[in-house]
């Protein structure tokens, strides 16, 4: 299981929890697992999210490996200038 930290405004879709546990070995499994467990997250995940894995931000990269002890933080998909 991987503990995923969600940003505050997503917690209404996770029964108020700031961190949820998902069975996942990579980013793709994590996103699929989140949508399965918390269907309210689907619109945001479809719009796009980034993932911070041990402090490094990944914008796409479905097959980035996640270990059970990894720090995983979900972030909005960003655009810059």
């Amino acid at each position: 299981m991987v503990a995923v930290t969600l940003w505050g405004s997503l917690r209404v879709f996770t029964n108020g929890r700031a961190s949820v546990e998902i069975e996942a070995r990579n980013f793709k499994e994590l996103l699929d697992g989140l949508v399965a467990a918390y269907p309210g997250l689907r619109p945001q995940i479809e719009r796009g999210v980034s993932m911070a894995l041990n402090g490094r931000i990944y914008k796409e990269a479905w097959f980035t490996e996640i270990r059970p002890d990894s720090e995983v933080v979900l972030m909005p998909y960003m655009q810059g200038g």
Partner: peptide, 15 residues
């Protein structure tokens, strides 16, 4: 100041 190991205000821990 934030530094390596700080839990950032946006979620991840800084490298």
């Amino acid at each position: 100041a934030a530094k390596k190991g700080t839990l950032s205000s946006y979620g991840p821990t800084f490298d």
